[in-house]
Design a protein around this nucleic acid. Structure first.
Lengths: 220, 220
DNA sequence: GAAGGTGCTGTGAAGGTGCTGAGGACGCCA
DNA sequence: TGGCGTCCTCAGCACCTTCACAGCACCTTC
């Protein structure tokens, strides 16, 4: 007997597509189209995993997971949500979901994540990274300095993210270009200098040391 | 013998669920239900990790970690807390916890984080090269002499890096030109002499011996 | 002791390295 | 369409590093 998956999704076209696709992969799929009916099915249906939309009539996806967890049902939950900004990924994970996908998503990615969940491997949300009074929360994509939020652009954030995982170590421009920028993109090394400059203005000039001829170092 | 985990949680249903789940995963699990008893068990039980609720009778989870850390117990701690706003994630991390989960949480996520914590147990200590009171840390690209930082230029650093890996051995100028300078560049051997001079001024005159007609040797 | 070899160091030129402000390209949104 | 934010390039500048050179000190050899 196959692996049983519950799909809770009110958009009937998407629900049907998922059911078809997952069935073709060998899963046994049931669907529900409202919050309450999904919750009920999850409680009693003996499923191995649940794919759960956030926007549902009757009860939101968040609420469904929250109630399940409160009742100590540990069914793996993969949440789906439109990227409308109102809700974000951190909310989804905070309410007890195991993984999270933003619409529009790739079916292949969904499948991969579902399989990972079934293997009991929730994606690890990294801890909040801290260096001095600088704090970076990857799940929320938030950076604070002395508890004051610092607003960073995508690139600035990616740069800080890379550096803060190796505090005190010297990281070369080439390495940064490879990992923070797209390695194949042939961005000029000067871009690194420019963004180091931006970052310094936001997190403090002395926090990011230049090691001439070698790279940059986040002061510990 | 398995990995030993201590669960400190006063809600008995959750404690039981965790014990059951973690045991099924192969962990050896003990539980405590109050702050003081948890602290005591953590001190003396030889656990590999602790899962610790914040709200506990007798002594809060924060206080438990704080006291453990004050006594220099570095047991990995995963904190659990209700997201009621009064306490937040930062508090948990600030008081010395290693990771933090907000209730309601996903069991799979808890498992993933716990495993991450146990893995992280052995923090990677990059090699530091030492000769006498001279220390060179390649990752941080930092050189200290009697614990005082010595600031080196790129070339000086490269030279010292090369020499410190062969302490006590005589290294010829040609070899240095080949490895520290670009071998093809046809730099005059005098450059080596110049940089040996620079280095001597910074790390101490007697640390770098001249072997006339043969090369240089880093005194051990 | 003279002569030549070897190594040391101060000077200064050349060029390298990094920082910054300006501004173009692009995508997004109203 | 225009305004805005972001990304990134470019050019100019300031500063630092590197290295050649030359003069000198010292050692070795004869």
């Amino acid at each position: 007997m196959g692996v049983r998956v519950l799909v809770v999704e009110d958009e009937s076209r998407l629900a049907a597509a998922l059911q078809r696709g997952l069935t073709a992969e060998g899963f046994v799929v049931d669907t529900a189209s409202t919050g309450p009916s999904g919750l009920d099915a999850a409680r009693h249906g003996g499923y191995d995993a649940m794919i759960l939309d956030v926007m549902l009539p009757g009860l939101s996806g968040y609420e469904v997971v929250r109630r399940l967890r409160a009742e100590e049902h540990w069914l793996p939950v993969l949440m789906l949500s439109a990227k409308d900004g109102e809700y974000d990924q951190a909310d989804g994970l905070d309410c007890g979901a195991d993984d999270y996908l933003t619409k529009p998503f790739s079916y292949v990615v969904l499948l991969a994540r579902l399989r990972a969940l079934l293997r009991r491997g929730a994606p690890e949300r990294p801890t909040v990274l801290t260096v001095g009074d600088l704090r970076l929360d990857p799940a929320r994509r938030r950076v604070t300095r002395a508890d004051v939020e610092v607003v960073l652009t995508a690139r600035e954030y990616a740069l800080l993210d890379y550096l803060i995982r190796r505090p005190g170590e010297v990281v070369s421009k080439t390495e940064l270009l490879d990992h923070v920028w797209d390695g194949g993109m042939r961005t000029a090394p000067n871009a690194v200098e420019v963004y180091v400059g931006y970052l310094r203005r936001k997190i403090g000039r002395d926090r990011l040391e230049t090691v001439r001829g070698a790279g940059y170092r986040l002061a510990t």
